[in-house]
Amino acid sequence: MRETVKLISMEGFEFVIDREAAMVSQTIRSMLTSPGGFSESKDGVVTFPDISTTILEKICQYFYWSLQYSRGKETEFHIEPELTLELMMAANYLHT
């Protein structure tokens, strides 16, 4: 099993993050674990044509923050107000 996965943004930026972190998103988790050999689970690469680089970066930060939070490290996750709307849409999409 691969340790890392690659997330690609609308603009083509690639984020390589831990598989464990990516799995914070239920949607990504399904993509990586669903049976039947979808391309995502085979290659470990997920492309998001609707998510901008800025947002995807924030999302990746959130994944790591969430992991730590769930392990008991209670810090705050800062969100710039101007990103809020897009971020929430992405969250809905990713079921995070």
């Binding site: 949607t27 399904s30 993509m31 669903s34 039947g36 050999g37 979808f38 391309s39 995502e40 689970s41 085979k42 997920v46 492309t47 998001f48 044509p49 609707d50 999409y93």
Partner: peptide, 17 residues
């Protein structure tokens, strides 16, 4: 395609989207 077991080329993300 899924029923015909021909799903390997499909992108989960695209279908989900």
């Amino acid at each position: 395609q899924i029923y015909n077991q021909d799903a390997s080329g499909l992108s989960f993300e695209e279908l989900y989207r």
